[in-house]
């Protein structure tokens, strides 16, 4: 390995000439950066290498590059994983939009270093008060002896509920095809 080091160094040292950076006087030079380092010198690459452009090999590179956009879900007759696409809601007085990842916008918020748990529903469109009324009847049934503590933020289109009811609310939304 000791013999390898200078060899590897010669390959990976930047071959950009330093002089061209100095000429632009208005350009701010940050000496802390590797690009503008004073010690960066032009090094001749003595290691033999071959530059290839083979489409078959490049396919493997493209395969592992991370995608830049969130893809659309597959249109399937039946989904095995429990995920469902959103139904049509033209006549409904309220609507819960899906997140950019095609998921329901129901989140668990753990506050006070794990002491308190809150469920937050986001992206509620339309009549949020009617939505709250429907949700209240479902949740009050679920946590019967306890009172339901729920806060509606009409402006931010959010509802915050005391306690962890994420899965229950996701199930309820799924039943309503949201």
């Amino acid at each position: 390995m000791t013999t390898m080091r200078p060899l590897l160094f010669t390959i990976f040292t930047k071959t950009k000439p330093f002089q061209c950076l100095r000429k632009t006087s208005l350009h701010q030079i940050r000496n802390s950066s590797y690009e503008s380092s004073k010690f960066l010198v032009d090094v001749e690459v003595s290691t033999k290498y071959e530059a290839t452009k083979i489409p078959e090999e490049w396919k493997y590179v493209e395969r592992i590059l991370p995608p830049t956009l969130v893809p659309e879900p597959q249109p399937l007759p039946e989904y095995q994983s429990g995920w469902k696409p959103q139904g049509d809601h033209k006549d409904s007085p309220y609507f819960v939009e899906r997140s950019r990842n095609h998921m329901m916008p129901v989140y668990l918020d753990v506050r006070q270093r794990g002491v308190k748990r809150h469920t937050i529903i986001k992206k509620i469109q339309g009549d949020i008060w009617l939505f709250e009324k429907d949700l209240r009847t479902f949740l009050e049934d679920l946590i019967k002896p306890k009172p339901l503590r729920l806060q509606v933020n009409e402006f931010a289109r959010k509802i915050c509920i005391n306690g962890d009811h994420v899965n229950a609310i996701k199930y309820w939304l799924g039943e309503k095809n949201f």
């Binding site: 013999t3 060899l7 290498y49 493997y60 590179v61």
Partner: peptide
């Protein structure tokens, strides 16, 4: 998959640099 250790991938030129040094 399909890429060997030692290769350098150049994304801008869409080229793969392969070392030829014996060591």
């Amino acid at each position: 998959y399909g890429l060997h250790p030692g290769w350098v991938v150049n994304l801008r030129d869409k080229a793969i640099l392969k070392p030829q040094d014996e060591e």
